[in-house]
C-alpha cells in the first residue's frame, strides 16, 4: 500500500503527519521523502544514514571530431540545452531534461550521453522505519527526475508513506502519481482552505482516492470542515491546535512520543487511509 501525504499550502503539517504515521504502525514501513528541495522527515526520525547514492541525469556530450554544426540537435531540443551557433554544438547541461533526443537525431553519431549529478538518495533506518530521502543539489531546477529516483526504491508489497512537496505542480504530481491513497493536510484558515481546493483539483485530476487531515483545529474557523462536508471529502483526522505540539515539533521530536495521548489519533488514521486505499483497489477491480 502506498500512501502519499500532500498539501497545497506549505507548513500545514505534512511532514508531521508522515513521520508520526510511520512511527504509529506496528511493523516495518518505508518512508520516502519526496520533498527533495527541502527534505525534513529524517530531522524527526533521527535515522542513521546507512548509504548515500548519487542521482544523475543523462546529458549530451559532443564529439568535436564528428560534429559538423548542422544544428539538427538544436532544432529538436525544446529546452535550449544544446545548439550549434555555426560551430560545433554547445551543451548547456543545466537546462537538459535528459530526453535523449539530440543523441537520436544526430546524423553523424557525434552525441553520446554522460551523467550529470543532480542530487543524492540517502537511506536511513530508525527502528522499523526505513527512510529514503531525496536531496536535490542547490541550484538544480528540475525536481521530478530525482523524485522518480526516490520512488524507484519502492519495493513491491511494502507499506510506503510518501512525503510530498507543497504545491500542486510537477513535483507534487511526480510524487502522487501511482499512490493508492492521498492524505491532504491543511489548516482551518483562509490560506489553508484556498490551497486545499487547489490540491483537491489536482488530486481529482490524477484520480487517486483522498481524504483530509485538518491540523491546528481551533486556530481558525470552520470553513475547511464546511468545504469538506459540501464536497463529500472525508475528514480523516483533526489535530488540535496545541502549543505543546508546536514546541515538540520545533525541537525535532515526534508528537506520538512527546505526547503519547495523541497516539490513538494516528492509529485511527491508519485505519481510515486503509479504507480509502481499499476503495481504489475496488475501483480497479471494476475497471478490469
Amino acid at each position: 500500500m502506498i500512501i502519499a501525504v500532500a498539501s497545497g499550502k506549505g507548513g500545514t503539517g505534512k511532514t508531521t503527519v508522515a513521520v508520526n504515521l510511520a512511527r504509529s504502525l506496528a511493523g516495518p514501513v518505508h518512508l520516502f521523502d519526496c520533498d527533495v528541495e527541502e527534505p525534513n522527515a529524517n530531522l524527526f526520525l533521527h535515522g542513521a544514514v546507512e548509504r548515500t547514492d548519487e542521482v544523475t541525469l543523462p546529458v549530451p556530450a559532443v564529439d568535436a571530431a564528428k560534429c559538423n554544426g548542422c544544428n539538427e540537435c538544436g532544432r529538436l531540443c525544446q529546452y535550449h540545452a544544446i545548439a550549434s551557433f555555426g560551430s560545433q554544438a554547445l551543451v548547456f547541461s543545466e537546462l537538459c531534461h535528459g530526453c535523449g533526443g539530440c543523441m537520436l537525431v544526430c546524423p553523424r553519431g557525434a552525441i553520446t550521453e554522460t551523467p550529470r549529478r543532480i542530487g543524492v538518495l540517502e537511506t536511513a533506518r530508525s527502528g522499523d522505519i526505513t527512510i529514503v530521502t531525496g536531496r536535490i543539489d542547490v541550484g538544480v531546477a528540475f525536481a521530478p527526475p530525482l523524485i522518480r529516483a526516490v520512488k524507484g526504491r519502492i519495493g513491491s508489497g511494502v507499506t510506503a508513506i510518501l512525503d510530498a512537496p507543497p504545491g500542486t505542480s510537477c513535483p507534487v504530481i511526480a510524487t502522487v502519481t501511482g499512490a493508492d491513497a492521498v492524505i491532504l493536510v491543511t489548516e482551518p484558515t483562509p490560506f489553508g482552505l484556498h490551497d486545499l481546493t487547489l490540491a483537491v483539483e489536482t488530486v481529482r485530476e490524477l484520480g487517486v482516492p483522498f481524504g483530509v487531515v485538518v491540523n491546528r483545529v481551533g486556530m481558525g474557523d470552520g470553513r475547511v470542515h464546511a468545504y469538506c462536508a459540501k464536497e463529500g471529502i472525508p475528514v480523516l483526522l483533526d489535530i488540535p491546535d496545541d502549543r505543546r505540539i508546536a514546541e515538540a515539533y520545533s525541537s525535532g521530536r515526534l508528537l506520538v512520543e512527546a505526547l503519547p495521548e495523541y497516539r490513538t489519533l494516528f492509529t485511527g488514521l491508519w485505519q481510515a487511509v486503509g479504507e480509502l486505499a481499499a476503495k481504489k483497489g475496488r475501483a480497479t477491480e471494476v475497471a478490469r
Binding site: G11, I136, Y249, S250, S251
Partner: peptide
C-alpha cells in the same frame, strides 16, 4: 516555497531576498 525551478525564477537578479523562517528544526 522550496529551492527549485520557481524559486530560482523568483529570485534571479533581484536586489534583496528576505528569508522568512521559524524556530523549528
Amino acid at each position: 516555497p522550496g529551492i527549485g525551478c520557481p524559486v530560482i525564477a523568483s529570485l534571479t537578479c533581484a536586489n534583496w531576498v528576505l528569508v522568512v523562517t521559524e524556530p523549528t528544526v
